[in-house]
């Protein structure tokens, strides 16, 4: 069973200075699965990603990746952040940003050579970023930047791709394009994907499993198994209703008008405490 799993959480507790963020996390993520990691702001989604990257250690329990304990800086895991810092003047071309994905952690310079340039160019083609490959990164749109970050993460051919809220700075259209791109690449290259989002709806067509986080706990399964009033009521510890309208799913606390997993409303204080 473990040999089939890409990621295994075994009784993971995570607390920061005595304050518990995640408790009793116990699940396997299958190899090649596209998993949507869904939950309100502050639910611990980023913490979960950092555990898998080995950037923090669980307070107790273990996290395994392909059967071995996690270690920082492993090339089998690719990470895509929300965005990156760059003024319009930043003297860095799109292809140089992507190139950092090859060996950005190594000491010293990267000396340009043909094989290196070719690998970068191939990846730029793969994510559809060739048109703006020589532009300064600071002048690119959110969607263009996100493609570069995905290319950067994929250059070392990771077997797992972790994306932490890649949609948060994008309009609906570019968000959709990014999801399709990731789904396509994941399928072609058999990459396991953990895609963090505060809204599950854009991911409904592509995700194999949903990992729903709330109140420090997680449920993992297909959308039809997890997004049910009983399951989420148990998870949130208070009555929850699930509405399906026109193929969209909305999760409400009973009696409240505001959906639980939309960051804007959560940020304004409607989340369950």
């Amino acid at each position: 069973m473990t040999s089939e799993a890409a990621i295994t959480f075994n009784q993971v507790h995570m607390a920061f200075s005595g304050h518990t963020i995640l408790r009793e996390l116990q699940f396997n993520i299958d190899k090649g699965a596209f998993v949507g990691v869904i939950g309100p702001n502050g639910a611990g989604k980023t913490t979960l990603i950092r555990l898998i990257l080995g950037l923090i250690r669980p307070s107790s329990g273990t996290v395994h990746v392909f059967g071995s304990p996690v270690r920082r800086g492993k090339r089998q895991i690719g990470y895509v952040p929300q965005s990156f810092v760059a003024d319009p003047d930043m003297p860095l071309r799109a292809r140089d940003l992507v190139g950092l994905g090859l060996d950005g952690e190594r000491w010293g310079f990267a000396f340009p050579n043909h094989a290196r340039q070719q690998r970068i160019q191939d990846m730029l083609d793969r994510v559809g970023a060739t048109r703006y490959a020589d532009e300064p990164v600071g002048t690119l749109s959110g969607g263009e930047r996100q493609r570069l970050l995905i290319a950067q993460a994929l250059l070392t051919h990771p077997k797992i791709l972790l994306l932490d809220e890649p949609l948060s700075n994008l309009d609906i259209h570019s968000g959709h394009e990014i999801i399709q791109l990731v789904a396509e690449i994941a399928h072609d290259s058999h990459v396991t994907v953990m895609f963090v989002a505060h809204d599950m709806n854009p991911l409904l067509g592509v995700m194999d499993q949903v990992l729903y986080l709330a109140q420090g706990r997680a449920v993992v399964g297909s959308v039809d198994e997890v997004i049910l009033p009983e399951v989420l009521t148990e998870l949130y510890g208070q009555p929850v209703e699930v509405l399906r309208i026109n193929g969209r799913i909305l999760v409400f606390a009973s009696g409240e008008m505001v959906p639980l997993t939309h960051s804007e409303s959560i940020a304004h204080g409607h989340a369950l405490a």
């Binding site: 990470y79 952040p81 950092l100 060996d103 000491w107 010293g108």
Partner: peptide, 16 residues
């Protein structure tokens, strides 16, 4: 290289 990477994205640098 690591300086440039962590200037652009601290999280990516850490993850690497």
């Amino acid at each position: 290289r690591p300086l440039l990477l962590s200037t652009i994205s601290l999280e990516t640098a850490q993850s690497r």
